[in-house]
């Protein structure tokens, strides 16, 4: 009985209904439920991070143990992880928080994570350019419309656009405020209605795929 899906479905129903009911009763103890539940959600998510890290490190540890191809890079990953955690613990003991401006943990963030992250994302500028080229080659009305809009928006946001025509930034603003807004709103409404439907199905126990 305990191992079945009955208890989880009941928990989902109960928690879901409490969340909905609390929305309509803005008095204690219901009034604070949304804020409290978001804190609880963060706490549970914090524990799940251990599962994710275990999966990541476990996979690379196995690659290292088997001496698979590129095992050296798995070693780099494990050493990077271990060093960061060890430094974090030491600096927490030393300063009370690892995020102190003078800590080596902040040093790792500033000189390893920040440059690696922003460079990784900036690399996408080149690949987006090649994707745009491929989209342009599609040679149909929709693809051309997409690309022309993208070019107008890009030019309208830089000084060069204003040099070409003083109307270009205004036209860009109009695209953002009217046709772009309309489609974005339509897509958003579709997503929200879909999310609403799925949420109700989950609470009522009709949708159970998350338990498999």
């Amino acid at each position: 009985m305990l191992k079945g899906k009955g208890i989880p479905i009941f928990i989902t129903f109960l928690v879901g209904m409490i969340m909905i009911i609390s929305f309509f009763i803005p008095h204690k103890p219901f009034g604070d439920i949304e804020k409290i539940s978001l804190n609880w959600y963060s706490i549970i998510a914090g524990f799940t991070m251990l599962l994710g890290v275990d999966s990541l490190i476990g996979m690379h540890f196995r690659k290292l143990k088997r001496k698979d191809e590129n095992w050296f890079f798995s070693l780099v990953l494990i050493l990077g992880f271990t060093a960061t955690v060890v430094v974090g613990i030491i600096e927490t003991v030393r300063f009370g928080t690892a995020f102190d401006d003078k800590s080596y943990f902040t040093y790792i963030y500033n000189y390893f994570i920040v440059p690696l992250q922003s460079t990784m994302f900036s690399l996408l500028a080149f690949f987006i350019a090649s994707a745009a080229y491929r989209a342009f080659r599609a040679r149909n009305f929709d693809a051309t419309l997409l690309l022309i809009t993208a070019i107008i928006v890009m030019l309208g946001r830089v000084p060069l656009g204003e040099q070409i025509s003083p109307y270009l930034p205004k036209f860009t603003e109009w695209i953002m405020q009217v046709p772009q807004m309309a489609a974005k709103r339509g897509i958003g409404l579709g997503i929200s209605l879909g999310a609403l439907g799925v949420s109700i199905r989950i609470i009522l126990g009709i949708e159970r795929s998350y338990l498999s």
């Binding site: 780099v76 990953l77 990077g80 992880f81 271990t82 994570i113 992250q117």
Partner: peptide
Amino acid sequence: HLYVGITAGY
């Protein structure tokens, strides 16, 4: 790989 490792630790 260094990025992934350090970020996970962070």
